[in-house]
């Protein structure tokens, strides 16, 4: 069994804990008493946060809408479609016809790269996140 240091995905307190991993599965959560943020404590959300990780509802494959239905596809097909459609629409209607919403739930590096894509690739400052809400 291994213990991997992670950060709680829920609220802005940023509590730390180890995920207990056995055979490639998360089996539990153990906070570190030495950490100054939560000092070994967690709330009910934190204690149970590993459960949704292994939910059977998780998305496992890219989906593409065909004839009105979302159907499974390959990464290649999905990413190609994303690139072509965004580029085409941007060229036809101007960069500000595109919008990008980044996330208060993903990492800093991912937020950085997402805004780099919006600004650097698609040349628009229409970038925001949902945390105003």
């Amino acid at each position: 069994m291994s213990r991997i240091p992670t950060i709680c995905p829920f609220c802005g307190c940023g509590c730390n804990f180890y995920l207990m991993v056995d055979g490639g599965h998360v089996i539990g959560v153990e906070p570190n008493p030495a950490n100054p943020v939560n000092r070994g404590m967690l709330c009910a959300k934190g204690w149970n946060c590993h459960e949704f990780v292994q939910s059977p509802d998780r998305l496992k494959l890219p989906l593409i809408r065909k004839d009105g239905e979302l159907v499974e596809s390959t990464w290649d097909e999905a990413l190609d479609l994303v690139c072509t459609r965004l580029k085409d629409l941007g060229e036809k209607h101007g960069p500000d016809s595109l919008g990008f919403l980044s996330s208060a739930k993903v990492t800093n590096e991912e937020n950085y790269l997402f805004m780099k894509m919006a600004r650097g690739v698609f040349k628009t400052n229409n970038v925001d996140h949902c945390a105003r809400l």
């Binding site: 829920f10 802005g12 980044s102 208060a104 739930k105 996140h129 945390a131």
Partner: peptide
């Protein structure tokens, strides 16, 4: 509110 609101803003989101 959310775990990385601060970071999303800091990163130019």
């Amino acid at each position: 509110g959310q775990n990385n609101v601060q970071g999303a803003c800091d990163m130019g989101g």
